[in-house]
Design a protein around this nucleic acid. Structure first.
Ligand SMILES: [Mn+2]
Ligand SMILES: [Mn+2]
Ligand SMILES: [Zn+2]
Ligand SMILES: [Zn+2]
Lengths: 135, 135
DNA sequence: TTTTCACTTTAGAATAATTATAAACTAGAA
DNA sequence: TTCTAGTTTATAATTATTCTAAAGTGAAAA
């Protein structure tokens, strides 16, 4: 994804492409593979990589804006911190608690044969499979 | 589960059956169905139910002790608070975000037909299925 | 091009959940 | 009954996150 596309991505979702948002968006979206991160880890990586300092509040703001725009999803991981995911399609995860690392599993790589029906009056919104790993 | 069994349960896991632990354990374990809770919700319910006040720190301590002893499990739910579960067997959950309520799914009620193999050097510890509900 | 202003960034304060501290208390062994 | 390691408790500390409000800026309009 090139810079022009980043600008399009931001503008098309109503996000003014500020210096900070463009820098964060380039870091997050100009990559081949899925990127899983916490705000803390993103902050560290951006600080290391870039010369211009982006405040932590802006990183929180930007990540939340990107999520609201559908450019990021949130993954539920054990622990106190929120994980985000550049893969916004329906998919599943391996989780390696040794390294606190998430690994994507394509939705098609898991087939559920039997599933209970939703309780009275409710419907199934989505199914998340989380596979914990050990050594 | 009767009081005598609560005492056994605590003692057999090396937990001295103090007044507070017995009261919390009775509240948690003397019931037919699984109970899902946060420390905050447990604190509210105990305050309502009982005459003797148990400090919040003790509720945290007790819940952690019970978890360490294998009498409670932790469930990962979206949001900032930790959920605990009196069902310590391998099982799955429905989650109703409207009511913030977890509903147990027996491990046998979900059959996974196809699953990817674990990454190099890793093994699968366990598989958790989380089914989000909508109306 | 300059003006204008709603949107954005930012430092720092506030909040919320949880954990740590350390003094007082107590279950139960001796 | 005495003794003490384990426990409870009030309160402080910590951590992640959100809020606040002042200063800055992108981009539409003049
Ligand atoms: Mn979490
Ligand atoms: Mn959680
Ligand atoms: Zn992912
Ligand atoms: Zn459960």
């Amino acid at each position: 994804m090139k810079k022009i596309d980043i600008l399009k991505k931001l503008r098309s979702s109503g996000l003014r492409p500020t210096k900070q948002r463009v820098e964060i968006a380039k870091f997050l979206f100009e990559r081949e593979k899925t990127f899983h991160f916490t705000v803390e880890s993103l902050n560290k990586l951006l600080t290391k990589k870039s010369t211009s300092k982006i405040s932590l509040a802006t990183i929180y703001n930007s990540v939340h804006s990107f999520k609201a725009a559908g450019h990021l999803s949130e993954v539920e991981v054990r622990g106190n911190r929120t994980y985000f995911d550049t893969n916004v399609s329906n998919h599943h995860h391996f989780y390696d608690s040794e390294t606190a690392e998430l690994i994507d599993i394509d939705a098609n790589d898991i087939i559920i044969q039997k599933i209970p029906k939703a309780p009275n009056g409710k419907k199934i919104k989505n199914v998340e499979v989380f596979i914990n790993l050990k050594n």
